[in-house]
Nucleic acid binder design. Structure first.
Lengths: 346, 346
DNA sequence: TGTTAGCACTCCACACAAATGAGTGCTAAC
DNA sequence: GTTAGCACTCATTTGTGTGGAGTGCTAACA
């Protein structure tokens, strides 16, 4: 038995209807609402076949059908291969992006917009710091024995570190040290800072090697720390309003999952590390494809953003399996386009 | 009719029991579990009086009693006036605080700990920037026509601003400008920066007045923007596990409320602005005292933290009215003590 | 006069049965 | 190959009865 044209049409009808209503779809509903020119009985036969093929399933004997992960997969692959949608230019996004500011704030604004736009949960990882190029390092006097190190990288990301050192320093001295640091580090990737390099640079600093060493060690540690990237989320409550989570047990469970930053980080960066960037840059995991009990009723759409040609972060949407993939993908693409424009010209 | 000793004991018993069980408390329960030496019938008479006095109420005719806001208020005032609890030194908090770092990160860590400790929702506002003293300003070269301004204030808070200017600048030049800025601004409150002052400082900068003006204008704007303080929350999901929110409708409603940062900011800073800092620094609003429909089933405990002797931020806990006020207040006091120690020595 | 046992009454919560209805699979006719 | 008809399934809704927790009131008691 194979998936002929008519079966495919029925499958599409089932999915389409289910996306709208969240209710199992019966043969009569399809016959009435979709102009396929066949009776409920015929549709029932086809549905029986579709179930045997694994594309749809029945919650219980006398209910209609709902799409299975395999069914969604087919549907989503069709959307992805269509690629007819050229991302629109969204003026409100541009307005958002034109507010010059820190990239962290920008990303937080972006997930907020994305979540509001799609009524889903939006997540984003801050750029992978270790792979960024160092643009500028500046040491700033705080008080006796305390110094603030500001490290600016690609995309004008600024990271601040408070350092404790064992001697007092005034700003002119710190400027001198900053100059040395910049000479040595400008243009390097953050992860290129390693112990031999630290020793080498310390030599240049003469008797001020302590603070130089300290700055570099802090950066070194930050790099070898997977706390490297931050995760921002927005719109988790959107899930509470969905019928699939109308059971308090499930609602609590999904909220708890979305609240675990470490877990979300892993979910987001999983494929990213493995370089399995797919189809047009958009990657979709449906239900059990996430390989995780807590996410089995959810789908995850992700895509990467690039700074200086390198993929440095991931932005994504989490929603119920029964989500509007079409428009979610579209929103994501539009935003990515604008983000990259902003980050790379700045 | 007045509130004699026995009535008070019964009220305490009712509240104590209700805090544990979240179920209306009947006369038999009190007679059995609390050693008051009187029978259920007598207790019933007293309860009838307590209800008439407005301290307790009945959800329906044949149910036990639950405390009213007025009842909680009496109970809470007794706790507050007792003040026998000298905040303990918590080693795990100290460990947290000793990680030198940005104040924003610190505050985020603190609410996380507080929420975990109390199983409530913890909220904190970042220090009121406009009332902080300027410690240091440093301009950092980013790229052609873009400069990063780092402004460090009391408590080593660093705020970064990306500025666009109309001419190229190298770092030595920016250092010179930073020097001028520091000379003029060091020790001032941020809010003391105003238009006349800006003009005055511009004069010192000679032909570099554009960038100087720009930096100051950005700061000026930030001050006159109530986006001044950020709000961090943690543990909102703790609410989902409480029996008072076992109804999905209510659960969603409270989660939505807690998700509205602007609303929470207002709630937190309401009394703060009005300087109505109360009893031992701890301020409690019970249920309808919050004057807000969404918060009518919740209580809010707040207290301020000081930097350099000035109250600059608020930290608080949101929980069900039926929360363990005693231990919540205690946790809050302990944390405040440690925070202030850390912020003021740094 | 304050306390207590007894009792009728109220009302929620829960369990259980019956009715409803949406949807199916199968069969036989077209 | 398609379709009408029909028996069957099963979740959901509705109705009903029962148990139990708790009250208020009354009358008796110390």
């Amino acid at each position: 038995m194979e998936l002929n044209e008519r079966k495919l049409k029925i499958l599409e009808a089932i999915i389409s209807n289910y996306l709208d209503t969240a209710e199992p779809v019966g043969s009569r509903t399809i016959s009435k609402n979709y102009d396929l020119g066949i009776s409920p009985a015929t549709i029932r036969n086809e549905m029986s076949d579709l179930e045997e093929l694994g594309f749809i399933m029945q919650p219980h004997t006398s209910a209609g059908r709902i799409p299975s992960d395999k069914g969604y997969r087919l549907y989503v692959d069709m959307i992805l291969s269509a690629k007819y949608d050229s991302p629109k230019h969204l003026s409100y996004v541009e307005a958002l992006l034109n507010k010059a500011g820190r990239i962290e704030t920008l990303l937080q604004d972006i997930v907020a917009v994305l979540a509001k736009e799609t009524n889903l949960t939006a997540i984003v990882s801050t750029p992978q710091y270790s792979k960024c190029k160092i643009k500028n390092i500046q040491l700033i006097e705080l008080e006796a024995q305390k110094v603030l190190a500001v490290i600016v990288t690609d995309g004008n990301m600024a990271n601040n570190y408070v350092l404790e050192i064992n001697e007092d320093m005034d700003q002119p001295m710190l400027n001198k040290l900053s100059f040395i640091l910049n000479n040595q580090l400008h243009g390097l990737d953050v992860e290129e800072i390693n112990l031999p390099l630290i020793e080498k640079i310390k030599a240049f600093a003469g008797n001020q090697d302590e603070i130089i060493g300290k700055v570099l060690e802090v950066v070194f540690q930050a790099v070898h720390n997977n706390d490297d990237t931050q995760i921002y989320t927005s719109g988790a409550i959107n899930m509470l309003r969905l019928p699939e989570f109308s059971d308090l047990e499930k609602a609590t469970s999904i909220m708890e999952t979305l609240d675990k930053k470490d877990y979300i980080r892993q979910l987001l960066l999983n494929d990213f590390d493995g370089e399995s960037i797919e189809t047009d840059g958009v990657n979709i995991k449906i239900g059990s494809e996430n390989n995780n009990e807590n996410m089995k009723d959810c789908s995850l759409i992700t895509t990467t953003y690039h700074i200086g040609g390198k993929p440095l972060g991931v932005i994504g949407l989490i929603g119920p399996r029964r989500m509007d993939y079409q428009s979610a993908i579209f929103s994501l693409k539009c935003l990515i386009k604008e983000i990259e424009k902003r980050m790379n010209d700045s």
